[in-house]
Write a protein that binds this DNA or RNA. Structure first.
Lengths: 190, 190
DNA sequence: TCATTTTTTTAACATTTGTAAAATGTTGCC
DNA sequence: GGCAACATTTTACAAATGTTAAAAAAATGA
């Protein structure tokens, strides 16, 4: 159980009334994990939904000889195994904390029950999925229209915090290039 | 106004009760457009939400010297301007019908009112966004892990109908390659 | 059917990006 | 400090894809 005042500071909860926030908070708890912790594992149904209260995280898939980072989370972002959340099936992604972090944690089953009971919370969940959807689609389109150098410039402009705190190898795969290519891009614009 | 029996044949409505379906159907109408019609235009807020009842469609963005197709819709798919639907702002995409098509059309404002009134419909809207989200994210990940040839093989396996009915130039940009590259891939696996 | 337009393929060449391996830089810890 | 582990850059070369232009094939409409 978490205090409503604490949730009010987190942007993702801004649209909710006190009463809905209270309903949610009953099922939430605060957990801490150290840097390097893997909080979601591929091939396992993850029963929890998280909000990153403090810290940063990355989601990645394991390929044959490489790891691809395809998502970064910062304080205030929601964090869940897409396939567990949406289809109740094992996910394809691992989520690793890149710093010592604090997470708000809630059972998916509790969240799903609230979706079936509370109209405001159901619409809140809808908007979360919609915002993630539009961000993901924009990234897909950017891959087609923008070169790797331009995507990198945009990344450091729009996510200066991540740029400071995340290893370049993770940024490289997030941008869809190898680390060598990213090094070349960085060398070219010095 | 559309008959409930007609909607029952469309997979996306399967989870809804008769009563919710009736609420939706009050605001729906059936419209026909010819092949080549542009039903959603970039830089314009599109006030309607559509379900493709018959036909196929593609969403594309205009670049400097190229058009990038990033989405295909078939019978049963929902179809809307993401930015209009989600942020009430002009979109970035055009949607063109690739065949003579029949569409179920509904005002976004009517849909949004139902989201605020009807729990079942709000959760239905949530699931639509979630399904689109997971499909889009999988495509983004596939771009990183799979070569263009493999993505093409998967496309023709998973979307044989689109493969038959859509021009190769559109498939090429959907897969993230030029038409020349797709031609080479097709020549190599003959 | 024929002519016209559009789509698809092919070719030659340029560019980008990838791969592998070595060199350099950074960090944390004893 | 100095070692060990890890991250980043650099180099040389290979592979994939892009660009441009032209030819071939297919679709369209009178």
């Amino acid at each position: 159980m978490i205090l409503i005042e604490q949730l009010r500071n987190i942007a993702v909860f801004a649209s909710l009334s006190d009463s809905s926030l209270h309903e949610l908070s009953k099922h939430m708890e605060l957990v801490k994990h150290p840097k390097g912790a893997i909080i979601i594992r591929a091939d396992k149904v993850e029963p929890n939904f998280f909000v990153l209260e403090k810290g940063i995280a990355r989601a990645y898939c394991n390929g044959e000889n490489q790891e691809i980072t395809f998502w970064f989370g910062q304080a205030g972002n929601v964090l869940f195994s897409f396939n567990s959340y949406i289809n109740n099936r094992p996910g394809y992604e691992n989520v690793e904390l890149l710093e010592n972090s604090t997470l708000i944690q809630m059972r998916l089953n509790d969240l799903f029950s609230l979706y079936e009971q509370n109209l405001e919370i159901a619409n809140w969940g809808r908007k979360i999925a919609e915002q993630e959807l539009i961000a993901t689609e924009k990234r897909l389109i950017d891959r087609a229209f923008k070169g790797a150098a331009e995507r990198y410039q945009e990344f450091i402009t729009q996510s200066p915090e991540l740029n400071k705190r995340v290893a370049l190898k993770h940024i490289a795969s997030y941008l869809g290039v190898t680390q060598v290519t990213l090094s070349r891009i960085r060398a070219a614009c010095k």
